[in-house]
Design a protein around this nucleic acid. Sequence first.
DNA 1: TGCCAGGCCGGGT
DNA 2: ACCCGGCATGGC
Length: 224
Amino acid sequence: MQTNEKIKAFYGAMMAAYGPQGWWPAESDFEMVVGAILTQNTNWTNVERAIANLKAANLLNPQALHALPPEHLAELIRPAGYYNVKARRLRNFIDMLVGDFGGDLGRLFALGTAALRETILGVSGIGPETADSIVLYGARKPTFVVDAYTARIFHRHGLIDMDATYEDIQSLAQGALAEDVAVFQEYHALLVAVGKRHCKKRAPECSGCPLSPVLEEGQPVGET
DNA sequence: TGCCAGGCCGGGT
DNA sequence: ACCCGGCATGGC
């Protein structure tokens, strides 16, 4: 089976196993952006606590966060981990949003896909995965999100080498799939669903994985 | 109880 | 152009 065919087949297999995931879990676009930054290398349940703190304080909007002293912000998002770093990253994004787009996410998201991605990537603390997540789930524009699960799952199925870069993996996926926002949104969410259950870093419990029927014998399963 | 979670930056080589 | 230490909480 060719690589492109596998990538397409994964989608059907994942969808059959888990159904539509309906990502991103947020009540507003701004909440989505905040969640994207807070979830960097962090369990989502910890992010939920941090977001709940911001909501409880009525601070989950660009203007309120812009006016909030950084130490206050750090304390509120503490459950999400790396709270000093993340407070700075949130502030960097908000500074860009307020400074260049009047604090209006709609104006930022009105940029074309490529310009939007580059603009967001220009913020210190926002790398390719966070930027693509915001483009795909916030602005709802077509870009494929690559994360640790994507790399690990694709690698364990022999689709990519260990040294594949973010861009390598993204091009591979975008070359195999039709450019469709809904498909990209579900594909990434489903990969995370598979990863959480069957593709953790050091626990190769590939049994029961909806993708395992395609897993070739002798495939390295222990790393990355 | 150590390992892991939906990364990214900055300094050093 | 890579490589690596640092950043931190909470769950299993």
